[in-house]
Amino acid sequence: MARTWIEEVAEVAGGKISFLQGGTGEPLLILHRDIGNPGWLPFYERLAQRFTVYVPSHPGFDKSDRPDWMRSVRDMAIVYQWFLKTLQLRELYGVGLGLGGWIAAEMATMNPYLWKRLCLVSAMGIQPTRGEIMDQFLVYTTDYIKAGFYDQTKCDELYGKEPDIDQLVRWEINREMTTRIAWKPYMFNQALPILLRGVDTPTLIVWGREDRIAPVNCGERYMQALPHAQFVVLNRCGHFVEVEKPEELAMLIVEEFGREPARS
């Protein structure tokens, strides 16, 4: 089958941001997780049938240049506003996965008119009141990723039973950048739940019921913070919803993003 996407580079904030682009239709930005972007996933392909999908690798992740000056997820969110300006994208749809969900939420608090609609999938960013976000810095990345799957065969299909050295090195690069911006407090911003109250973007929050990395309670807290949100919890699904339930997640998003009007 012919490749349906292209790889591009944008110059932003003194560095290169590498991104994948595919599909046609209104623009939709996908922000990936702390482990990086594994490539053009079937989930992206499914969304590309309806939208023009952009999947950048965060600064310092995968092939994107590392900004040595960057210290926080907010810095990252600001760089993404710059990235969108560079691509001349003003109002668009957003899908934030894990750490990418946190970035998308920060972007929403900075510019409440940015997202037409937003989907946060097992997003980091808010401290749970029950349970804790699993600390990747105390375990091997492979163990962290395995913990994120309810169905281990899905993990093996994506990364192989024993990820190779190159894959481990890529994960290490991404983990280093995560360390630089999310070390303390780990994976949340205490101000975020307060600031999100001012965001009226219609938001779909999706979680896997068996998420062992970000407790479902994180999603409940996003629900409490965002005035126009709805919450969907998928059964027999872990943290990596887009890999374990790509079809279901894409359908939820297409249906939600297709509603009119986009903003109340």
Binding site: F137, Y140, I165, L168, V169, E172, I173, T178, T179
Partner: peptide, 19 residues
């Protein structure tokens, strides 16, 4: 050797050690 503690040179040896 937590992430970023050692230089770039350590990434590959640590990965080889891991497997």
């Amino acid at each position: 050797a937590p992430a970023g503690y050692l230089g770039e040179w350590a990434r590959r040896p640590l990965a080889e050690y891991r497997v």
